[in-house]
Design a protein around this nucleic acid. Structure first.
Lengths: 135, 135
DNA sequence: TAAAACTATAAAGCTACTATAAGGTCAATA
DNA sequence: TATTGACCTTATAGTAGCTTTATAGTTTTA
């Protein structure tokens, strides 16, 4: 299987595959005589794993960590659980921050309407004067 | 006022100020004979405006856009309102996405506990097999 | 046979800074 | 006076996770 086929199979760009290889997340595949990479099903699974992790918002470093656990299958999986717990709390704090931000933005938006000139714009005035009433 | 004082006043690093100048967000200040930048209150206000926008999550490009409106004070502020509306909907979709992600992560986390070996880890298995039951 | 589609590498670009290097300036101190 | 320390200057590289571009070789298709 060549790189283009693998890319299509998993739904990524070929450059992304090369990038993961370069970052040490995908093992370097064998090469044909012409230098083309040849992939196996294993590579497909590895790549799919990476993509699912990315969809879950894990960083490449975290994925690397997970891979290192996979390579040592008889250790307790405490660290995997901890990694996920950390990530969950990270996501939660992002949500909290964004919700506070949304509130601020909505109240700022309420301070203006389309019928004004920029000079009198409540939004620009609000930002300029720092009336962002963050709590 | 020199760059260090301005930085302390607004609460940013001196490099950040130079960076904004380079990006065209802060007008280049006058220089002393020795080359040191000299700032006025105007610069302080401009910098504070930028920082407040950044706290609101606006990109440098969006800030640039707002500045261009400020330079044209007799236009209707429709575009400002629209920019904010867009940003609000952007923030909202981020929140929605993160909430869905949190759900996925929590359900994945529930599929394992600390008493297993990596080999039997419900989380790794879940990711590997794509049981991420995204809806 | 020639063009289209694929592959390769290397390097730059993206965002919004932050950090580092190497050096010039200035006031106060030993 | 020499030097220390705090400040300033520019230029360059690093961060994350790719994407884009440039340049070139290979394979497939018309």
């Amino acid at each position: 299987m060549r790189i283009g086929q693998l890319a299509q199979l998993v739904g990524v760009e070929t450059q992304t595959i090369r990038f993961y290889e370069q970052q040490g997340l995908l093992p370097p595949p064998d090469r044909q005589d012409n230098g083309y990479r040849v992939y196996t099903e294993k590579h497909g699974e590895g790549l799919a794993f990476i993509r699912r992790c990315r969809i879950l918002g894990l960083s490449l470093a975290e994925i690397h960590e997970l891979q290192s656990y996979q390579d040592d299958p008889h250790q307790p999986c405490t660290a995997v659980n901890a990694l996920l717990d950390d990530h969950i709390s990270h996501v939660r704090s992002q949500i909290t921050a964004l919700q506070a931000l949304e509130k601020q933005l909505v109240s700022l938006r309420a301070s203006c309407n389309d019928d004004r000139e920029v000079e009198a714009c409540g939004i620009l005035a609000g930002i300029s004067e720092g009336n962002m009433h963050q709590q």
